[in-house]
Design a protein around this nucleic acid. Structure first.
Ligand code: FES
Ligand code: FES
Lengths: 150, 150
DNA sequence: TTAATAGTTGACAATTTTAGTAAGGTATGT
DNA sequence: ACATACCTTACTAAAATTGTCAACTATTAA
C-alpha cells in the first residue's frame, strides 16, 4: 500500500513551483535542485501534468512552467491521478469490474471499492493552495518577513 | 496505489474460512480450491496470520485452521497489516520519520500521514463478521434456507 | 542569424518488488 | 505405519518502478 515516488515527486514539485513562482515561469532545473529530484524524471512528470492542463509551459530562455489555474483550484488528488495510472486499489475494479471473473461471487471488492473512494475523497479535499501556505509558513521561520530575503 | 494480491488473497481466504467453518477446522486445500489461490501461497499467508494470532491451527488429519477469535473482533485492517509489511503510503514515514532527511523542510508528508490514517481507519472499521454475513446473504440466493444444500 | 535556454518526446536500462514455486520438514489422528 | 495437513525456508520468474539517455523543437537575446 505504497504511493509511487512519481506521485510524491509530483506533489512536492507542484508545491515548490507554487511557492517560488510569483506569476513568473519556473524552470525545472531549479525545482530539480531544490527538491533533489532528477531533472529528466521531472520532465516526464510535467509532460503529463501539462497534458492534464494543471500547468502550462513557456519555452525559450527565461521560460519554465507556471500553474494553469489558481492554486486553490488544483487538488492533490488531481496531481496524483495524472501521474499514477490506477487510483483503484485492486485490478478487479478496472474497467468497471470487467477485469475480474469472480466479482459476482466476491464480497471483498466492496471493501476495496469503498477504500478507493475514501482515498480519492481525501486527496481531492486538499488544494495546492493549502500546502503552499503551509510551506511558506515553514519558510518564514527561517527568513521572517522583514528579514534578509536575499 | 495498489494493494497487493497478498492482502486481497488474505482477506478473501479469511472470509471463506469464516463462512465455511462452523467451529470445525478448515484445511487450506479447500480454501485454495474454492478461492483459486495457490496452496503454497496460502500457506505462507496463514503462517503469518497465525503468528498474529488471528487464526489458530489444528494439525494432523481432519485438521486445518479456525478463527482465533469471534469474527466480530477481527478487523480487515488487521488482516491486511499482518500480510503487507508497510501500511504507510510513503517510506519517509517509516520508523517515525527517521527514514527521510527532508522531513523537516517538507510539507507533503502531512498529506501522506493523513492519508495513511484514513486508510487504516477505514479498514479497521470493517469486521470479518460483516463480510461473512454479506457473503452468506449472497450464497443464500443460490441455495436458499430449506433448499438442497448439497 | 546564431547561440543559448528550456521544454518535448520516445526509447531504454537498472533496480526493486511482487507473485508464485519448490522442497523438505513436523505433528497428529486412524 | 501411514496419510493428512500444517510449518518453514529458499529460490526464481515476472512485472512494475525508477531513473537515464539522446535527439529534437521552439523561443529569446545578443
Ligand atoms: S476477486 Fe475480483 S472482485 Fe474479488
Ligand atoms: S520528502 Fe520525505 S517527508 Fe517529504
Amino acid at each position: 500500500m505504497r504511493i509511487s515516488t512519481k506521485a510524491q515527486y509530483a506533489v512536492r514539485a507542484m508545491v515548490d513551483l507554487s511557492v517560488h513562482s510569483n506569476g513568473r515561469p519556473v524552470p525545472l532545473k531549479e525545482i530539480s535542485q531544490r527538491e533533489e529530484i532528477p531533472l529528466n524524471y521531472l520532465e516526464q512528470l510535467f509532460f503529463r501534468l501539462k497534458k492534464a492542463e494543471v500547468v502550462a509551459s513557456v519555452r525559450g530562455p527565461g521560460g519554465g512552467y507556471i500553474l494553469a489555474r489558481p492554486s486553490a483550484l488544483i487538488k492533490v488528488g488531481e496531481i496524483v491521478a495524472m501521474v499514477e495510472e490506477p487510483l483503484n486499489p485492486v485490478s478487479c475494479l478496472d474497467d468497471g469490474g470487467a477485469a475480474c471473473h469472480r466479482i459476482s461471487r466476491c464480497v471483498t471488492h466492496n471493501v476495496w471499492q469503498g477504500l478507493g473512494e475514501r482515498i480519492r475523497g481525501f486527496l481531492d479535499a486538499i488544494s495546492l493552495e493549502e500546502l503552499t501556505r503551509e510551506a511558506q509558513a515553514g519558510l518564514d521561520v527561517l527568513s521572517p518577513p522583514g528579514g534578509t530575503t536575499r
